[in-house]
Nucleic acid binder design. Structure first.
Lengths: 136, 136
DNA sequence: GTCGATAGATGCAGAATACACATAGCTGCG
DNA sequence: CGCAGCTATGTGTATTCTGCATCTATCGAC
């Protein structure tokens, strides 16, 4: 399909939860709440997150298990298909807390940029690097 | 590479900034501040973000331009190699503000989960996440 | 038996990424 | 000059990740 000058075939830039956003969201849910994939997938949607592919959720959970962030076991106590119950490991907690600084910086960057949302004291034209004056 | 039973070859789960985290960080920096790739790459590190591959930063910027989020032009006013100056477009601003809701939910999820884990920081506490505690 | 909901997983094509490397302009220095 | 080192932007490529469709399987209702 040739591209017309009138119809820009720009790829959509719609928000989607995956990668580290998804991983950390899952870990966060598991912090105080053991759960299984299907449940987590639904909570994500209920929490107002952009819709995630359930296949990706399951794969992400397995990968988190492979890296030792979570552990799982089958739960057949209830009727219905067996569920793989996940729980956060020590390593997962550490990883999660390590992400806090990253996320806080990230939030800070975004809120500074958006000015009106951040109740910060002063909004400068220059981006304050937070840790100090950037020297070139 | 075969894995030795002695050396746990678990993939490292270190925080890394890419994908939408990287894209939105770059857009945020450009909100009030026109800049070029090398500069942005350094600001990212100065802002406390995990180190990002500069190649990825350049490619991400080009991709953001392709999707109309930013625009660029060469700057040869200073001595040294030419710089590709980027500036945020209207579409970029809209996309950025559209991300705020996602981010607020994301922050809310993490902050709820991390409540007791997070180091004491003067982060604004705004529990407006719609639902309450997760329950079965 | 068939339908739908639950619960988990995989195959595949296309996209994104990390790492190494390439290019080019400029500065300092012996 | 030659040459190293920094600035500034990119590319090649193998690997990984993602979205979508599809598949298995259990259970209750009809």
């Amino acid at each position: 399909m040739p591209e017309d000058p009138d119809t820009p075939s720009q790829p959509e830039m719609k928000p989607r939860l995956h990668g580290e956003l998804l991983s950390t969201s899952l870990l966060a849910f598991l912090k105080n709440w053991n759960a299984y994939g299907y449940q987590l997938s639904q909570r994500l949607a209920q929490a107002g997150m952009p819709e995630s592919d359930s296949g990706t959720v399951y794969r992400t959970l397995r990968q988190l298990e492979k890296t030792g962030m979570v552990s799982s076991c089958w739960d057949t106590s209830e009727s219905g298909p067996a569920r793989r119950m996940y729980s956060l490991t020590k390593a997962g907690e550490l990883f999660l807390s390590g992400w806090i600084e990253v996320l806080q910086n990230y939030q800070s960057v975004l809120q500074k940029a958006l000015g009106d949302l951040a109740p910060a004291a002063g909004v400068d034209d220059e981006p304050a690097a937070g840790d100090g004056a950037p020297q070139d």
